[in-house]
Simulated assay, not measured.
Amino acid sequence: MSFSYLKQLPSPSEIKEQYPLSAKLTALKAERDKMISDVITGKDNRFLVIIGPCSADNEDSVCDYVSRLTAVAEKVKDQLIIIPRIYTNKPRTTGEGYKGIASQPDPEKKPDMLAGLIAMRKMHIRAIEESGLTCADEMLYPENWGYVEDLLSYVAIGARSVEDQQHRLTVSGFDVASGMKNPTSGDFTVMLNSVYAAQHPHHFVYRGYEVETTGNPLTHVVLRGAVSKHGNCVQNYHYEDIMRLIERYDQMELMNPAAIIDSNHSNSNKQYAEQVRIVKEVMHNRILSPEIRNMVKGVMIESYIEPGSQKVGEHIYGKSITDPCLGWEASEKLIYDMAEMNA
Rank of each mutant, 00 (worst) to 15 (best):
residue 64 D to A: 06
residue 62 V to M: 02
residue 195 V to E: 04
residue 263 S to L: 11
residue 280 K to L: 13
residue 314 E to G: 08
residue 233 C to K: 01
residue 171 V to C: 09
residue 183 P to H: 05
residue 334 L to P: 04
residue 133 L to S: 03
residue 221 V to R: 03
residue 223 L to I: 04
residue 243 M to R: 11
residue 322 T to L: 02
residue 48 L to T: 03
residue 249 Y to V: 03
residue 343 A to C: 14
residue 8 Q to R: 13
residue 12 P to S: 06
residue 284 H to V: 10
residue 242 I to A: 12
residue 157 I to G: 00
residue 298 G to C: 10
residue 140 L to A: 00
residue 282 V to G: 06
residue 125 I to P: 00
residue 189 T to Y: 13
residue 225 G to W: 00
residue 85 R to L: 02
residue 289 S to N: 10
residue 282 V to F: 02
residue 75 K to A: 14
residue 65 Y to N: 04
residue 208 G to D: 07
residue 207 R to P: 01
residue 140 L to H: 01
residue 96 E to F: 14
residue 152 L to I: 13
residue 90 K to L: 04
residue 146 G to Q: 06
residue 127 A to Q: 03
residue 37 S to H: 14
residue 166 Q to T: 15
residue 247 E to A: 13
residue 324 P to L: 10
residue 254 L to R: 07
residue 90 K to Q: 14
residue 284 H to R: 15
residue 283 M to A: 15
residue 334 L to V: 05
residue 139 M to N: 01
residue 135 C to E: 07
residue 96 E to I: 13
residue 243 M to Y: 12
residue 224 R to F: 00
residue 190 V to E: 09
residue 141 Y to S: 12
residue 88 T to Q: 08
residue 31 E to C: 11
residue 338 M to I: 12
residue 22 S to I: 06
residue 272 Y to Q: 08
residue 229 K to R: 13
residue 206 Y to M: 11
